[in-house]
Design a protein around this nucleic acid. Structure first.
Length: 872
RNA sequence: GCGAACUUGGCGGAAUGGUAGACGCAGGAGACUUAAAAUCUCCAGUCCGUAAAGGGCGUGCGGGUUCGAGUCCCGCAGUUCGCACCA
């Protein structure tokens, strides 16, 4: 069979994809101005920017394909769409590469960025590349330093001592997750707790606001809001001071009373001990006095970081011998150091009421401390009520509680607080689990903290005109510790205040700082100030943010905090950065092991009739579980390899096809092949229309029923795909496009009936535009065949469904008896109810089954069902 | 321990309280071909029945609401995720 047309016989993505990418770039259609145009509504689509680890992986492809669908769809719907991309480019892997392979972090990072940018561009994402930023470049991090100094002026920054995990070999601070079983993850050295002076951002200033703001985020997943709510952790209670019962001589006066936080001031009469954290100042004093106390404290610290210590959770304590006075009773109670008391929650001290708290009860049993029930549950008799193995934490009536006796738990709480306030030793307070954000890191590859330390003036802000404080390039990684600290000259400078010799802060920011405001920088990425108000206020908030659930708490909370802090310091005018949040699932794949138990890459495995073997051999391969793609399990598929074999559109189409975007999806060879097959079939179908039907075809007034049916399918598909895209049901949109494609292919058989030429052309043009958000290159190629003079598909308006064509020409109505399907009948849309019910009753099978039965009710739901309810 | 989500064919999944299983993958049968690939057509929850007609059973399990429940309510189980000694 000869193909006389100039169009190729199959869709050749290798030549087509670069062609359209160039056409988009030449037409400059993804660029938007810093200030959103007034004549169009704005829409800001943002995907979480990647860490430049080396290669783009499938998770990125899924994330960015999803975002691109939204961006292209919204553009077609008439929005001015901001869709930028950048790089979260500071971080430890670059330093590890430097130590392991001798590559400079900057070179390593910039090379990775170049590689990954290339892959993103080959995928044809509709990004505004002029806005690209990399957090490791002074142009970005210098503005971040400015923000920090403004926060400092605004009272949102504090310097204070704080406990850190110190790795004595690597000479660095480790995050909790880098400490494994009490040892450094790289060095294996036992980790020490050390106090360091660190910078803190006062996120707790906004605790209430961050909590309340969650209520306004109605386009966020419920579970993310719940996680943040718990993380912020508001609890109401009281703070009160217990004075020491005979304070020992020589004790610091500040330690003469111990302040505790409690949510249950009503249970004060059930107290049997006071417990303090091993890091509590009074514990430190006890440790000085008593070697056994010192030993206990040291042991708690050693176990504090290990996972099993938390899991085994045995309550242990050490009696200091000190005693405190009860605020309401003429009694005193022992002060214990207890391993389950956390220094960084509340005040680092609590009063133990064993009857009302399970932990306190376990502790009391272990050390033979008294248990006094103070809350009597409803329906229980005080005479035979006792607490044995389970504490009672619910509400009830107060007993054994002096002036609180007989009150409800609720009233007792209020009464106890008012008495404490009356005595001047306590008050009702709100306590937060959220703690201030320590941002100092002893690392090289991060944003330098713009502070100069002067012996006379203390820490001094670097003056604005000296920003950015740039990282030096000439650093060495041959010694442990922070290369900035070892650098021969970098840190030596003069004090901006007094002019005397001084040293720079050599700590850098936590990299979470970098990602806390990049969405704002994207609105004016080259401005000399961190933001430009008209740009930031015009584009923000991000209308749709898309990324992984793993950032549900920290990144999203920090970004919400930064936005408020930037608002307070005048850098922008919104409080919530992300109006809509979508969390997409992971990409997973089967895993494989050879007979020796080594992991194999998918391309090393071949499927045969008798199972899987190592490619080119007969060595059997064990097929393991479907798991998240990871380098360690080697169950990864490289996007570049897929693009080369199948094209960008096929890769995009497949990651969007089967699974709903919020769920995990499995990457399969068969699935990609199916996607590739579909793109070819779609192309052939559209090309056939382009060849068969002249572009000038008009809709004839007299149209055949088959043509009319195709038209209705087309318009119903428009409505269905639109609805699916609006609801992020991309897999459903894909299914509807499959259906219209099949209908159009089917229509080739009746190509000559009246009206079919027009119906086919309409369907073909519609298909091009409907699939354009997902397969933009193929869409352009097809669109150019169908409507050669109409310009780019990427610039067309989204198709509109004609309401008159949204109903089918005839409808199948289900006929039920007692809710069970017994037959179907055909009906006109909105046909008269009586006629439909009569026809339903006459349907042979229905009539047969209704014989001898009395119909007590006929339910008719127009265009849907008829249901006969019978009796007897 | 606390909290949340989820549970539908061999698989991924679809379904405003109204014909459960759309669409895809894998599978089966056939057409085309010397053959294969590609492509196309048809079949396909399960059981009874002759692959007909028809019927039974079916959305994790047990109840409930309703003319009608995958969908709403109550209880249970399982899976996954998050937080985890939070006073």
């Amino acid at each position: 069979m000869s193909q006389s047309s100039s169009t190729p016989t199959s869709y050749d993505f290798n030549t087509v994809e670069p062609k359209w990418q160039k056409a988009w770039a030449d037409a400059d259609i993804f660029t938007v101005p810093d200030v959103p145009p007034a004549n169009k509504p704005k829409y800001y689509v943002l995907e979480m920017f990647p860490y430049p680890s080396g290669q783009l992986h499938m998770g990125h492809v899924r994330n960015y394909a999803l975002g691109d669908v939204i961006a292209r769809y919204k553009r077609a719907r008439g929005f001015s769409v901001l869709h930028p991309m950048g790089w979260d480019a500071f971080g430890l892997p670059a330093e590890n590469a430097a130590r392991e392979r001798g590559v400079h972090p900057k070179e390593w990072t910039l090379n990775n960025i170049a590689t990954m940018r290339g892959t993103l561009q080959r995928l044809g994402f509709s990004l505004n590349w002029d806005r690209e930023i990399a957090t490791c470049l002074p142009d970005y991090y210098g503005k971040q330093q400015k923000l920090f100094l403004d926060f400092l002026k605004g009272g949102l920054v504090e310097r204070r001592e704080s406990w850190v995990n110190w790795d004595p070999i690597d000479q660095t601070v480790l995050a909790n997750e880098q400490v494994v079983d009490g040892k450094g993850w790289r060095s294996g050295a036992p980790i020490e707790k050390k106090q360091l002076s660190q910078w803190f951002l006062k996120i707790t200033d906004f605790a209430e606001d961050l909590l309340n703001g969650l209520k306004t985020l109605d386009r966020w997943p419920e579970r993310v809001r719940t996680m943040q709510e718990r993380w912020i952790g508001r609890s109401e209670g009281a703070k009160l001071r217990f004075s020491l019962h005979q304070p020992p001589a020589g004790l610091d006066e500040n330690l003469n009373a111990v302040e505790v936080f409690t949510t249950r001031p009503d249970t004060l009469f059930g107290m049997s001990f006071l417990a303090i954290a091993p890091d509590h100042p009074l514990a430190a004093w006890a440790a000085q006095q008593n070697p056994q106390a010192a030993e206990f404290v040291a042991e708690c610290r050693r176990l504090g970081t290990s996972v099993e210590a938390v899991e085994t959770a045995e309550k242990r304590g050490f009696d200091t011998g000190l005693r405190v006075n009860h605020p309401f009773m003429d009694k005193s109670f022992p002060v214990w150091i207890a391993n389950f008391v956390l220094m960084d929650y509340g005040t680092g001290a609590l009063f133990g009421c064993p009857a009302g708290d399970q932990r306190d009860l376990d502790f009391a049993h272990k050390y033979n401390l008294p248990v006094t029930p103070v809350v009597l549950p409803a329906g229980k008799d005080q005479a035979d009520f006792a607490i044995t193995t389970t504490a009672y934490t619910g509400d009830g009536t107060m007993i054994n509680s002096g002036f609180l006796d007989g009150l409800s738990t609720e009233d007792a709480r209020k009464e106890a607080i008012s008495r404490l306030e009356g005595l001047g030793i306590g008050q009702g307070v709100v306590n937060w689990r959220l703690r201030d954000w320590g941002i100092s890191r002893q690392r090289y590859w991060g944003c330098p903290i713009p502070i100069i330390h002067c012996a006379d003036c203390g820490p001094v802000a670097v003056p604005d005109e000296q920003l950015p404080v740039e990282l030096p390039d000439d650093v060495s990684f041959d010694k442990p510790g922070n290369p900035l600290d070892h650098h021969p000259t970098w840190k030596h400078t003069t004090c901006p205040k007094c002019g005397k010799p001084a040293t720079r802060e050599t700590d850098t920011f936590d990299t979470f700082v970098d990602s806390s405001w990049y969405f704002a920088r994207f609105t004016a990425p080259h401005a000399p100030t961190p933001t430009v108000r008209a740009a930031a206020d015009g584009w923000l908030p991000v209308d749709q943010y898309i990324g992984g659930i793993e950032h549900a708490i920290l990144h999203l909370l920090y970004a919400r905090f930064f936005t408020r802090a930037m608002h307070r310091t005048g850098h922008l005018d919104v409080d919530e950065p992300f109006a809509g949040l979508f969390t997409q699932g992971m990409v997973s794949h089967e895993s494989y092991k050879d007979s020796a138990g080594n992991w194999l890459y998918p391309e090393e495995v071949e499927r045969t009739a008798n199972g899987c073997v190592k490619r080119g051999t007969t060595e059997p391969v064990t097929v393991g579980r479907v798991e998240k793609m990871s380098k360690s399990k080697r169950n990864t598929v490289a996007p570049v390899a897929i693009i080369e074999r199948f094209g960008a559109d096929t890769a995009r189409w497949f990651v969007l096809s089967d699974s709903p975007p919020e769920r995990d999806m499995e990457w399969t060879e068969a699935g990609v092949a199916g996607a590739a097959r579909f793109s070819q079939r779609l192309f052939r179908t559209i090309r056939t229309v382009a060849q068969d039907v002249p572009t000038t075809t008009e809709c004839p007034t007299d149209i055949d029923r088959q043509a009319d049916t195709l038209r209705r399918t087309t318009h119903r598909t428009i409505a269905a795909v639109t609805e699916a895209l609006e609801g992020f049901a991309i897999n459903v949109a894909v299914a509807r496009i499959h259906e219209l494609t099949s209908a159009l292919t089917e229509a080739e058989k009746s190509a000559t009936v009246p009206g079919m030429a027009f119906a086919r052309r309409e369907a073909a043009q519609t298909l091009c535009l409907l699939c354009a958000p997902m397969m933009p290159h193929l869409a352009e190629e097809m669109f150019a065949l169908v409507l050669p003079s109409a310009g780019l598909a990427a610039q067309q308006a989204w198709p509109e469904a004609n309401p008159e064509l949204l109903t089918a020409t005839h409808i199948t109505i289900a006929v039920q008896i007692m809710g069970k399907l017994r037959g179907t009948i055909e009906a006109q849309p909105d046909e008269d109810a009586a006629a439909v019910v009569a026809r339903a009753e006459a349907e042979p099978n229905v009539a047969r089954l209704l014989e001898g039965k009395r119909i007590v009710k006929r339910v008719h739901v127009p265009n849907r069902i008829v249901n006969f309810v019978t009796a007897g």
